[in-house]
């Protein structure tokens, strides 16, 4: 049973460089493997999804990026949301502004509202995500999703981004934008939403994750899990790592073992392997300290390996399988 089986909106955040987009894409694939039809959204204009799935840049339109290949799996669609298109769609949908809508654009208001007016941009972006989550069979010809995964802004900005309500407070006190923000907030603070944080086992990202969870809690936003990404291989046990660090590993025995595997190791190779082992042991020691901090946060944690070849499309499916096995999806 998945840990977040009832969640409809998975929001994935993380510090830059932790692989949040890769994790978001893998989570979308994992949910699809559970039979769900999934929409994967990005809001930062980076076209990260298109690059991960190796497709042409995404328009403001839902596109199929991963078709179900096995029976019982669902499709994954993707959407790149930009504030300008979201605003025009919003205006067309709710106000039928017609001439005034065109005038807005002509007078630079669209530009103004989406780049300058604080908070409005975030309301528009989350508003579109909200629309995709809320869509149901009553909407004619609309594709209905079982789950939406949002590749969200980084940890340092996530609470501000999601807490659209308070961002607008003091600014737009009344009016439809405010009403829209309130509705979006109802979904974002409900049990139907989970905010997952991606980190790597290094000091700064872990500290940001700890701070991020505290901020999300304070804002009443539901924290999901912490996904520890880019985890190093765990083949060497405690004893082996201690020996490598102390420089007491048995060279002769190691050379013999390598010989059994058909590798005729000279001194240079043995030295290199031991040096690599020592570096690794040192880093693992530092990582373990960070892992203790992550576990201390008190939310479910998941671990994804560092793929030596990089997270290409094949890699995404591997990571998705790991997420399924560990119960995130």
């Amino acid at each position: 049973m998945a840990d977040f089986g009832d969640v409809q909106l998975h929001i994935v955040t993380g510090k830059g460089g932790t692989g949040k987009s890769t994790v978001a894409a893998s989570l979308a694939l994992a949910l699809a493997a559970r039979g769900k039809t999934v929409l994967l959204c990005e809001v930062e204009g980076r076209q990260g999804i298109a690059q991960l799935f190796d497709v042409a840049p995404l328009p403001y339109d839902e596109r199929l990026v991963a078709r179900a290949t096995e029976h019982g799996h669902g499709d994954v669609y993707a959407l790149a949301i930009d504030a300008e298109s979201a605003l025009l769609e919003y205006l067309a949908m709710y106000y039928r502004l017609g001439r005034a809508g065109k005038a807005l654009d002509r007078f630079g208001v669209i530009d103004f509202a989406t780049t300058i007016a604080p908070g409005v941009r975030d309301v528009l972006l989350t508003g579109k995500v909200y629309e995709a989550v809320q869509r149901n069979a009553r909407h004619k010809n609309a594709r209905v999703y079982d789950a939406v995964v949002l590749d969200a802004p980084p940890t340092g900005r996530i609470t501000q981004f999601l807490n659209v309500n308070s961002e607008l407070a003091g600014l737009a006190k009344v009016g439809p934008i405010k009403a829209q923000a309130d509705t979006v907030m109802t979904l974002l603070t409900s049990k139907r939403t989970a905010v997952h944080l991606v980190t790597v086992l290094e000091e700064m990202p872990v500290q940001e994750t700890v701070d991020g969870v505290a901020e999300l809690h304070k804002a009443g936003l539901p924290v999901g899990g912490v996904i520890v990404n880019l985890v190093r291989p765990q083949d060497l046990d405690d004893d082996a790592r201690a020996e490598l660090l102390a420089g007491t590993a048995d060279r002769t025995a190691l050379r013999k073992a390598l010989g059994k595997a058909g590798i005729d190791a000279d001194d240079a190779v043995v030295d290199t392997l031991l040096a690599e082992g020592r570096d690794h042991a040192e880093r693992r020691g530092l990582e373990d300290e960070q892992r203790t901090l992550v576990e201390g946060i008190g939310v479910p944690t998941y671990e994804l390996p560092k793929l030596a070849g990089g997270a290409d499309l094949g890699g995404l499916y591997e990571l998705a399988e790991d997420l399924c096995e560990q119960g995130l999806a």
């Binding site: 291989p233 082996a240 025995a253 073992a257 390598l258 059994k260 058909g262 031991l274 690599e276």
Partner: peptide, 24 residues
């Protein structure tokens, strides 16, 4: 290839060798 040969070995030196080969 070496890692795959040694990974399921029980003795300590082989396990260490396997781990180091994987890292390499």
């Amino acid at each position: 290839a070496g890692y795959e040969k040694l990974r399921d070995a029980a003795d300590e030196p082989s396990r260490m060798a396997a781990g180091l080969l994987r890292l390499h």
